[in-house]
Design a protein around this nucleic acid. Structure first.
Lengths: 343, 343
DNA sequence: CAACTTTTGGCAAACGCTTGCCACTGATGT
DNA sequence: ACATCAGTGGCAAGCGTTTGCCAAAAGTTG
C-alpha cells in the first residue's frame, strides 16, 4: 500500500489574532476583546473585526487562550469503566451539556482504581477547569483533599464535601421491595457490586432496613465485579441462598445472571425474580426483559455539568446548588413475577 | 442546601518549571530537556531535577507546552452518534491506545451531520494534533480537502485520499449470504442504513453482486435511521418483501426489528431469519440472540490510533500504512435458521 | 467653553514552556 | 601542544492569547 504521500507545499500557517488585527487595522488587544468581550468595544469596530476574522477563517488558539487567561474551557469527566453502558449514558449527558456551554470534554477511564482517579485529577489539574467524578472510588478524605483544590462535582457519590448529584436510591429500593412484597416474595437477596462504591453501600443499607421493616428475610451476596461475566457466579450464589427474588447492584450483573439462570434451566421469573438497576441499553430487550430501577442517568450527567459550571463562574446572588437528587422509578418488565409456591 | 463554601486561603499557585529550576539550581531550559528529552542532559543532573520535580509535585502545563512546541498531545475522535454502542467500542479502542501513548482524547459527537463534522475539524485544528473520523459523513471532496490540511485517519470509510481502517465488508456479506444459502434461503433482503454511510453503500453493492452470483432473489429496503426505534418500520417493510432472510445494516436496527417481529407474532428464525452487523453489546443477549457479522471494532479504534500516531511522527524508514482491513466473521446465534417451507 | 466622565482602543507585560544557538568543559586525535 | 569534537547547560526569543493600565476621543454637564 504505497499510496503517494501528498505533501503540502505551503505550510499554511494558521491565521493568528495578529493577522486579524493587521487586516482590521486595530491592535491585537482590540481583536481579543471584540471576540471575547464584545461590549468592551465599539459596535462598528467589532463588526469589522468579525468580518475580517470570518474571512480569514480565524480560530483562536485554545492553548494560548488558556495560558494567558488561566481558563481552559475544558472539563474532565472521570468514569470508573468506560466499558459500562451506565457510564455511556452519563458521558452522553455531560458531552451534550458541555458542548452547549462551549466546553470540551476530556474523557478519562479510571479503571475502577482510586489511584488512577487521583492521578488523573492531579495530572489534569492544569488542563481542565473542573472535574466530574462519576461513581468516584475515592475515600472521603481523598475526596475532601481534592475538592479543596479544584472545582468538581460527583455523580452517585454523596458527601457533605463536594457538590453532587445522586440517584434517589432509598426510594428506588423501597419501590422495588414493595413490588416484590406485593408479588409474595419473602426471602430476598441483594447482589452487591464493588465494595468501594458508595451507591452499592447505600443500596444495601436501605435494602436491609426496609426488608427488616417489612419482615422480609434479607440476604446479601457478593461483592461482584459489575460486569455480565460475573453474572454466573452471582446467579449461582443467589440460587444458593434460597431467595425467590434478587435486587441486583446493576443491570450488567443482572443480565449476566439472567444468562446463567437460563443455562441452568432456572426459569425467570417463575423460579426466581430479578430486579436490576439503572435501566441501561439492553435492559429492555434481554431475555426476559429486565425489571429495573430506572433513573434519568443522562440527565444526571447534564445536571452535574450545570452544577460544575455554576461553580466555575458563580453568580454573586445565589450560591450554587450542592446536591441534586434524581428521581427513580421502577420499570417493571418480565423478569419479576409472583413468588413460587412454597417448596 | 446552603453548604458552607469552603474557600481556599492560599491560592496555592501550582509549581512551574521555574520553581523546579530554582530548587535544582539549573536553568529552566535544562529542566525542560531533562523532562522531555532525557538524553540531552547529564544523568546526574536529570536525576536531581526529577527528584525536585517529584517533590514539588510538578506537572507541566500542556497548554504552555502546546503553545511553544506546536504539538498538543491530543487527538480528536469524531463519531456520528455517541449514542450508538458501535461507536462506544471504537471509542474504547481509541481511548485505550491514546492513553497508552500519552495522548488525550477529545471526543466529539457530530450528530450524523457532515456540517458539524467539518466544523469540528476546523475549530479543533489547533487543539488536536490529529483526527480520527469514525464513519465519516464527508464527501470525497471534503475529505480530500481536510486531509490535505491535517493528519487524520478514517474508520469505516475507505478512500485513496486518507489512511483508513475498514471492516472487511465483502467477505462478511459473502459469509452471511453463504450461511443463508446453506439454510435454503432464496429470497433475501438488505435493510439499509444511512445513505451517506460508505459502509452501507459497500454492503449493498456486495450483497447485490453476490446474491446475483448465487442466483438469489435480492431485495433492498430503506434507508433507515440506524437505531432500534427504526426497527419497526424496517421489520414491516422487510416482511412485505416476502424475503425469508434479511441482512441488516447494523445490530441496532436488527434488534429493533426483532422486537417488532415478536410483537407481530412473526417468529424468528422460523418465519424469517435476521443477520445483523457489528456484534455490539447486547447482540448476544437479545431475544433471540442475534446472528451477526462480527468484527474487532475496538481493535479498529486501536489500529486507527496507531496509524495516526505513526503519521504524526513518521519513521524515516518505512512509510506509514495507508489501509488496514479488519477481518470479520459471522457469529451464528439463534436469529437465523432454515428457510420456511414454501407457502 | 471648561471641566468632567465615559467609551474606546493601544501598549506591553505576563502566562509556562520549548528550542535554536552559543559557550564552556573535557576528552580525543594528530 | 594544538585543533577538534561530543557532551552539557544557559540565554533568550518566541508561541498566541488576555488584561491591567493608560491615553485619546467622544459625550455630558453647568
Amino acid at each position: 500500500m504505497e499510496a503517494p504521500k501528498q505533501e503540502q507545499g505551503e505550510p499554511a500557517r494558521l491565521p493568528t489574532i495578529k493577522d486579524v488585527a493587521g487586516l482590521a487595522g486595530v491592535a491585537t488587544s482590540t481583536v481579543s476583546r471584540a471576540l471575547s468581550n464584545p461590549d468592551r468595544v465599539n459596535r462598528r469596530t467589532r463588526e469589522r473585526i468579525e468580518e475580517v476574522a470570518a474571512r480569514l477563517n480565524y480560530v483562536p488558539s485554545s492553548q494560548a487562550r488558556g495560558l494567558s487567561s488561566g481558563r481552559t474551557n475544558a472539563v474532565a469527566v472521570l468514569v470508573p469503566d468506560i466499558t459500562n453502558p451506565f457510564y455511556f449514558d452519563i458521558i452522553r449527558g455531560t458531552q451534550h451539556q458541555l458542548k452547549a456551554a462551549g466546553f470540551t470534554q476530556l474523557l478519562v477511564d479510571t479503571e475502577e482504581s482510586s489511584e488512577m482517579e487521583l492521578d488523573a485529577l492531579h495530572k489534569m489539574r492544569r488542563s481542565a477547569d473542573g472535574f466530574i467524578l462519576a461513581a468516584s472510588r475515592l475515600t472521603d478524605a481523598e475526596l475532601a483533599e481534592v475538592s479543596g483544590t479544584q472545582p468538581l462535582v460527583t455523580i452517585n457519590r454523596a458527601s457533605a464535601i463536594a457538590p453532587s448529584v445522586v440517584i434517589d436510591t432509598p426510594s428506588a429500593i423501597i419501590q422495588a421491595l414493595e413490588h416484590l412484597a406485593s408479588l409474595g416474595h419473602q426471602r430476598v437477596c441483594y447482589v452487591s457490586g464493588p465494595p468501594t462504591s458508595w451507591s452499592n453501600h447505600m443500596r444495601w443499607k436501605v435494602f436491609e432496613e426496609e426488608s427488616a421493616h417489612r419482615g422480609m428475610d434479607a440476604h446479601r451476596i457478593g461483592p461482584f465485579v459489575p460486569k455480565t461475566t460475573s453474572g454466573a457466579a452471582a446467579a449461582d450464589a443467589a440460587v444458593r441462598t434460597g431467595a425467590t427474588a434478587c435486587i441486583v447492584f446493576n443491570d450488567l450483573l443482572a443480565i449476566g445472571m439472567l444468562q446463567r439462570l437460563r443455562e441452568r434451566g432456572i426459569r425467570v421469573p417463575e423460579d426466581i425474580s430479578i430486579v436490576g438497576s439503572d435501566d441501561i441499553f439492553g435492559a429492555d430487550f434481554c431475555n426476559p426483559p429486565l425489571t429495573t430501577i430506572a433513573s434519568p442517568i443522562e440527565q444526571a450527567g447534564r445536571v452535574a455539568v450545570s452544577m460544575l459550571l455554576s461553580q466555575l463562574n458563580p453568580t454573586p446572588g445565589r450560591s450554587s446548588r450542592q446536591l441534586a437528587v434524581m428521581p427513580t422509578h421502577l420499570t417493571i418488565r418480565a423478569s419479576t413475577g409472583p413468588a413460587p409456591a412454597q417448596a
